[in-house]
Design a protein around this nucleic acid. Structure first.
Length: 156
DNA sequence: GCCAACGTTGGC
DNA sequence: GCCAACGTTGGC
């Protein structure tokens, strides 16, 4: 069992969107960074914990708790010429990019990035390192526990 | 909109 | 394999 933080732009897919989806599950598509892809491909297992993070928005931060709900599989958007995520170098035989399914579990309160920066237990989070822009990053058990506790301090 | 930081591309 | 140029991310 591992823990991850995954960034989504809420204008695209918000945590509430995932809660409202069938089975509270969506395909995580559009990852086009090799390091992030490798985390999905080599590190994730069904049941791993996910901190669902809202980025590129007015108030960035952790919006809820989710879990990995599938094994990795090819990201369909790479083959779709009409998609923003189309990759002409990807083929069905040799896919480059992968997806996993993500199931939303629990919202809790919203934990803003500004608040996270003030918490000593989170100092080493990949997310908070200078220049870090990975859309998927590993989270330690200690970081996970600290954040889940904060999320549960106030329910929405 | 700005800009720092990072990743990718492609010429050599 | 180097590295400059370019594109992207994402907080502010």
């Amino acid at each position: 069992m591992r823990y991850w933080l995954m960034k989504s732009e809420p204008d695209e897919v918000s945590f509430d969107d995932v809660l409202a989806a069938p089975k509270q599950t969506v395909a995580w598509y559009g990852v086009r960074n090799y390091q992030a892809r490798n985390f999905m491909r080599d590190g994730m297992s069904v049941g791993d914990g996910i901190l669902f993070y809202h980025s590129s928005c007015a108030v960035p931060g952790v919006a809820g708790i989710a879990e990995v709900a599938s094994s990795p599989y090819p990201d369909a958007t790479q083959f779709d010429a009409a998609s923003h995520y189309h990759d002409p170098k990807a083929t069905q035989e040799n896919p480059r990019w992968i997806s996993v399914d993500v199931r939303a579990l629990e919202a809790g309160r919203f934990l803003p990035l500004t608040e996270m920066r003030g918490i000593a237990a989170l100092d080493d989070m990949v997310l908070l390192q200078k220049g870090s822009r990975l859309s998927i990053s590993p989270v330690t058990a200690a970081q996970w526990n600290a954040i889940v506790k904060l999320l549960r301090e106030g329910k929405r």
